[in-house]
Design a protein around this nucleic acid. Structure first.
Length: 569
RNA sequence: GCGCCUAUAGCUCAAUUGGAUAGAGCAACGGACUUCUAAUCCGUAGGUUGCAGGUUCGACUCCUGCUAGGCGUGCCA
């Protein structure tokens, strides 16, 4: 399709050039030819608003310009153009020869699993960091959204020729995990019968902490009481991280998200890189001392406030290991890194970017994308706060469990992933668990999967009727002459550009919407026309090719989303 | 106060770099299984794109102001 587009561009440019020479178009330069999307087949295969754009400089009516351009296209010289039509305020609608549709099918059949992919990324290495939840509790549905989106983004980037990997930053250092250790300690001692203990301010109230502490108490008894409090907290912190991180890993695996690299904040802190960075910043005179702390001159980088990098206690704030972590990413040779953040870390974005700049790295090396929040709403539509510390949240596992009861385990993951992936990243998502479960059965993902299953079923039937597939070159594709067939093939032809723009603009949700539209063309076609017809084998073979192509594109798209493509339902 | 995100059909959401008549699903109503799978199809109905201006051939999209909600905003991450 890209080749066809540039061919059309050249033809139109030639026509404009000829019109200028003939003195019929008073402009000095031949412009680039933009294309506008054709929403309906009535707008042709390709459409351009070029005449509208030239109206001002040429001081002519757009339709008159379009007419002039059309006049200078010698159609007999260009068999790829079936018809040029001028429509609306002055759009030039290009109807291509049907041959391009059949070429699309040939392309799909030969590319198969690779159809839609391209090499634009040239093998450049990209790291995407996402989820990166604190190891202080189970993953909630917010992390589920991030996991689904990040995972798909990596698939998309790999499909367009990058070498992308998934990375998870484990915040196993700092105040939060300290509170975790303290909270386990309290629950542990309570479990052993100690009274008058309370979870401290900022501690973790969730039941899972009680259960875990109780488990330690019953399994290992009071052996930890022989240590002093500080030592106990350190031990419990370590035990807690191991336990909760293990839980998170299991949840992610169940959700079909497999990270390539897990990086520990503790390890970064101990690597010496934070100290090197402080040293570097000091040399560059980015730091100063005030109020007993060490500050970074963020205002020199355009921020309105400076920020503390070394607390009065002597500890680094999270900025330092974070900057060190990004330095580490750079040292590992990534051409680009993408961080997916939640909106609660939005304030961190300009600062992290400034730190990266202070390290001397290029501005566009680090990209930070925000995935908007997921709000929990009750049956009346009222928002409920989620708080890991207070123990109020819905876990990803609970979501999948509930969905699994309605539709089974495999489809539960499909439904959940689709649910998160169909939204654009900056849509604030109101989540009602009850509704999600009752609507699971009506989830649009089944519409897509069912279309795929139907394709498979046709081939199953063909096999039973002993209808053999024949080579595509021996197939009379011209028999695919129904408008609905042309529309289907046009949609199939869109896939590569949808994939590309979806990856390039980090808009994973376009894939689910595209697949839904494709299924939405296939189902009516299936209902109206029969593929297998013993009385018309020539057409049967042509339609089998079309069916195969629909199946291929659906399967390729679903694979990008990490959603299964069932052969029967 | 300042910064970011959001506001589209009763509900949940789409709409490619500014393009032609703003689209789906759910919910409502009426139809279609002796058929390659009815998790499907066909039809009806549903809109001042939060409000007010501006930019231009053209605005859901860009700019300004306003309203409402969410998030963030110097030693939590």
């Amino acid at each position: 399709m890209d080749e066809t587009k540039s061919e059309i561009q050249e033809i139109l440019k030639g026509a404009i050039r000829a019109a200028i020479s003939a003195g019929e178009l008073p402009i000095s330069e031949v412009p680039d030819i933009p294309f506008s999307p054709t929403k309906t087949p009535e707008h042709g295969d390709i459409a351009t608003p070029i005449a509208l754009g030239l109206a001002k400089t040429a001081k002519m009516a757009p339709r008159a310009i379009a007419e002039t351009i059309r006049k200078h296209v010698n159609q007999t010289e260009h068999p790829s153009i079936r018809e040029l039509q001028i429509a609306g305020p002055g759009f030039i609608n290009v109807y291509l020869s049907y041959e391009w549709l059949y070429d699309t099918l040939r392309t799909i059949v030969s590319a198969k699993r690779d159809y839609g992919n391209c090499g634009i990324g040239k093998g450049k290495r990209i790291q995407i960091e996402f989820v990166s939840a604190n190891p202080t509790g189970p993953l909630n549905i917010v992390s589920g959204r991030a996991a689904a989106v990040g995972d798909t983004l990596v698939n998309l980037l790999n499909a367009i020729g990058y070498e992308a990997i998934r990375e998870y930053y484990v915040n196993d250092a700092g105040g939060q995990v300290e509170r975790l250790g303290e909270s386990i300690d309290i629950r542990y001692r309570q479990s052993l019968g100690e009274k008058n203990l309370e979870i401290p301010e900022g501690g973790y109230q969730g039941e899972y902490i009680q259960e875990f502490a109780h488990h330690i108490a019953t399994e290992e008894g009071d052996v930890y009481l022989k240590h002093n409090r500080e030592k106990r907290i350190a031990l419990f912190k370590e035990k807690g991280i191991e336990h909760l991180l293990g839980q998170q890993k299991a949840s992610l695996e169940r959700f079909r998200v497999n990270f390539d690299v897990w990086t520990s904040e503790e390890a970064i802190r101990n690597s010496g890189k934070p100290d090197q960075i402080i040293e570097l910043f000091r040399e560059k005179n980015y730091l100063y001392e005030a109020e007993n702390a060490t500050w970074f001159r963020m205002t020199d980088f355009g921020d309105d406030k400076d920020c503390v990098v070394i607390r009065s206690t002597g500890e680094y704030t999270y900025f330092v290991p974070d900057a060190a972590y990004h330095r580490d990413k750079y040292d590992r040779g990534f051409d680009k890194v993408i961080d997916l953040f939640g909106p609660d870390h939005q304030g961190h974005v300009p600062r992290l970017k400034n730190f990266v700049k202070a390290l001397g790295l290029a501005d566009d090396w680090l990209e930070i994308d925000i995935i908007q929040q997921v709000n929990l709403v009750d049956a009346d539509g009222n928002r409920q706060d989620m708080s890991k510390r207070r123990g109020q949240f819905y876990t990803l596992d609970l979501l999948i469990d509930e969905l699994a009861e309605a539709v089974g385990e495999e489809f539960a993951v499909d439904v959940a992933r689709y649910f998160f992936l169909m939204r654009s990243n900056n849509a604030h998502l109101d989540f009602n668990l009850e509704l999600a479960v009752t609507q699971a059965v009506e989830n649009p993902v089944f519409y897509i999967q069912y279309a795929h299953a139907r394709c498979c079923s046709i081939f199953q039937q063909a096999k039973e009727q002993q209808i053999q597939m024949i080579p595509i070159d021996d197939t009379t594709l011209e028999l695919l002459s129904e408008p609905s067939e042309h529309e289907l093939i046009r949609k199939l032809a869109d896939f590569p550009s949808i994939l590309l723009s979806s990856a390039a603009e980090r808009e994973a949700h376009r894939i689910p919407h595209y697949l839904y539209e494709l299924a939405g063309l296939f189902h009516p076609y299936y209902n109206k026309h029969r593929v297998l017809d013993a009385a018309n084998m020539e057409r049967t073979h042509a339609r089998l090719v079309l069916t195969q192509c629909v199946q291929t594109v659906l399967a390729n798209g679903l694979k990008l989303l990490g959603i299964s493509a069932p052969e029967s339902m």
